[in-house]
């Protein structure tokens, strides 16, 4: 009976993908850029955004994205608490060229830029506060 087979495959696929996503969501991985820096791209696309003196958390969001809200709260909280760290949120739908230039595939995606505007780390999926703080420490350690 093919219905039972399709049902089993669908259940397996859902559990497999769900566990995979749970594993990778919010995890920062190294992601180096060259010239122009990630901030150069952001500055060219989004007017008025100000980079942090120490680091900049660039978040890509879209309208149909529940975890973007979670990410916004976490990143804004970290930017509030840490001197010299700014949170910049970019509407992916309005900046598709930037999305392609920086190869953003999902929302939320968070880029951690160092003081010079170079991308050091990025995470797809909403990160937890501890993950952001660890990423900032790593970004600063790596750029000095």
């Amino acid at each position: 009976m093919t219905g039972l087979l399709v049902l089993s495959l669908a259940a397996l696929a859902a559990v497999g993908f769900g566990l995979y996503r749970r594993h990778v969501d919010g995890r920062f991985v190294a992601h180096a850029d060259a010239a122009p820096t990630a901030w150069d791209h952001v500055a060219a696309a989004s007017t008025g955004a100000v980079p942090g003196d120490r680091a900049t958390l660039v978040q890509f969001s879209s309208a149909f994205c529940a975890p973007c809200r979670t990410a916004r709260v976490v990143l804004a909280d970290v930017a509030d608490q840490e001197d010299g760290v700014h949170h910049v949120e970019i509407d992916a739908e309005k900046h598709l060229d930037l999305v392609r230039a920086l190869d953003v595939r999902r929302t939320p995606t968070t880029l951690v830029l160092d003081a010079a505007g170079h991308e050091v780390l990025r995470a797809a999926g909403a990160p937890q506060k501890q993950q952001v703080l660890a990423a900032l420490a790593h970004a600063e350690g790596g750029s000095r």
């Binding site: 399709v6 669908a10 259940a11 879209s62 999305v99």
Partner: peptide, 23 residues
């Protein structure tokens, strides 16, 4: 089956597959 995958991901993991396809 494909709709079922999306529904299960939402029900079990709170993951909205349709939303991600949007971008």
């Amino acid at each position: 089956g494909l709709a079922l995958v999306a529904a299960l991901l939402n029900a079990v993991f709170g993951l909205c597959l349709g939303c991600e396809l949007y971008l």
